[in-house]
Nucleic acid binder design. Structure first.
Lengths: 118, 118
DNA sequence: TTGTATAGGTACCTTTAAGTAACTATTGGA
DNA sequence: TCCAATAGTTACTTAAAGGTACCTATACAA
């Protein structure tokens, strides 16, 4: 968890320091639809390696954004979920999703002709 | 500008691929309040080096998010501004700013006591 | 003639992030 | 007895990002 003196003065910078990373944003996207197991996250986030996924999950756990629940089973089962704090990030991811949709639509229109030649 | 085939299927990923970077987000924050000169951006974004600022500005220009206007003056004057597309990113930065404010308030309360001992 | 201001470019080096592969633990089942 | 399954860890390597310092152009002012 970040401490008071580490807080940047600018709120945007504060937010960026917690979720500016590509992988964290995608982890957030996954967990917004509910609790997920480690393997589900790895499958859901294309291109992420086990190491990097673990690293980012730990970091987000430290930041209090996500929670981790280990079940005493074999083979192991570990579930990740958003904390209350993590859930408050939802509007940011929603805004990103919405913008991405608009952008995709724009690109699909603007180079329809170029792409048609593929 | 991104081409159709480079578009990720996920809208969040599309957005992240354009602005996931810390510096780009901060450049965006600066330009949301209006046109800025290079030097103003460098001063407004604490910790950014000239090289990195230039690199990110070029990349954002290529992505069609910002524009660049060079005045034929000496010493040179170059202004950066958001394009129409860039302006559509405003809700994302706004959401980040709002979240950051809430988070700062939370941290300021939760470790009031620890911090009091400084 | 020399310095100043602005917006870079470039070369070189360091730091950080990420990829890859191999290894661990445990237990139920073939 | 040995393999499969899950969620990791660790060591080693490569790629990307960033830092630092120094260089450029040019018109004006001292």
């Amino acid at each position: 968890m970040i401490t008071k003196k580490e807080l940047s003065l600018c709120p945007v910078e504060t937010t960026v320091s917690l979720i500016s990373n590509k992988w964290k944003t995608l982890i957030l996207r996954e967990l917004l639809s509910g609790t997920k197991r480690f393997g589900e996250l790895r499958n859901g986030i294309s291109g992420v390696s086990q190491k990097v996924l673990t690293q980012n999950l730990r970091s987000m756990e430290d930041d209090g954004i996500i929670g981790r629940k280990v079940y005493a089973e074999v083979p192991p089962r570990v579930e990740y979920f958003l904390t209350d704090l993590g859930n408050t990030l939802r509007p940011i991811i929603d805004a990103m999703a919405e913008w991405g949709l608009g952008y995709q639509a724009m690109v699909n229109n603007s180079n329809e002709t170029n792409v048609a030649s593929r």
